[in-house]
């Protein structure tokens, strides 16, 4: 579905991404982790088409529908907006489809005409996921969508995403700081810190070992996604 080969991105003369290669296949649940400033959001913006690569190539399967759930939700709290209007942004005006997707994310139909700003953080995030689902996407990109959401709601949303991936066959690219939460859900995890780090276990990478302590990196800068198994047997090869 997506194949990046030696991808590079420069913004205002600064190197944001360098030599990034990875691939995402249809139906996969892929995690993307990395520290602040690693270029995670920039990589997502490349996939969404906001930026063009400075070097390398990014091949995205033609005519796929991409849904997007942003980092910190940007809806301004100043002017009221109903849940129905938020779902309308997807381009789908059918109330039937809107209600189906609200139901899919576990929200009551009665919320459709409520003011979005008066919902709880977890409800808001579910509405945004429902908005992404309305256009029947082949791929949904989640850019750290659970910042500021309480622990219990986070677990419920993680379960919801797993269910969407399994039952609806939606490909998911999930950006997160919280490796512990996504490690059991993902088919594989990409470790990014300007370049794609390979040969390290994602948990080691998250603890800061990936960037400097991994001899594989200094010896072989070519990048391959870290394949991680569901039984958590993958280990650092450092």
């Amino acid at each position: 579905m997506i194949k990046a080969n030696k991808l590079g991105l420069k913004l205002n003369g600064n190197v944001i991404l360098d030599d990034v290669s990875f691939s995402i296949k249809k139906g996969e649940y892929v995690g993307l982790i990395g520290p602040n400033g690693a270029g995670k959001t920039s990589l997502i913006k490349l996939i969404l088409g906001f930026y063009k690569p400075s070097k390398g190539s990014l091949a995205i399967e033609p005519n796929i529908r991409i849904g997007y759930v942003p980092q910190s939700y940007t809806l301004s709290g100043v002017v009221p907006i109903s849940v129905k209007e938020v779902l309308l942004m997807s381009g789908v005006s059918s109330e039937k489809i809107q209600l189906e997707n609200l139901d899919k994310v576990g929200l009551a139909a009665s919320l459709l005409r409520q003011n979005f700003h008066q919902l709880s953080g977890g409800q808001k995030q579910r509405v945004i996921i429902a908005r992404a689902l309305c256009s029947k996407p082949d791929l949904i990109v989640f850019d750290e969508p659970l910042n500021g959401v309480d622990f219990e709601t986070k677990l419920k949303i993680y379960d919801l995403l797993s269910a969407l991936n399994k039952t609806d066959k939606v490909t998911i690219l999930f950006v997160s700081h919280e490796v512990d939460h996504i490690i059991d859900k993902c088919h594989h995890i990409l470790c990014l810190n300007k370049t794609m780090h390979t040969g390290c276990h994602p948990l080691d990478f998250a603890k800061g070992k990936g960037a400097t302590d991994c001899p594989v990196l200094s010896l072989a800068p070519q990048v391959v996604p870290v394949h991680h198994t569901h039984d958590n047997k993958s280990s650092c090869s450092c």
Binding site: L48, F50, I81, V86, S93
Partner: peptide
Amino acid sequence: WRSFLTLVFDKDFLGIK
């Protein structure tokens, strides 16, 4: 209406549409 609504509330989302 819908495009301007998306532009002012969530312009990144409009960018992919």
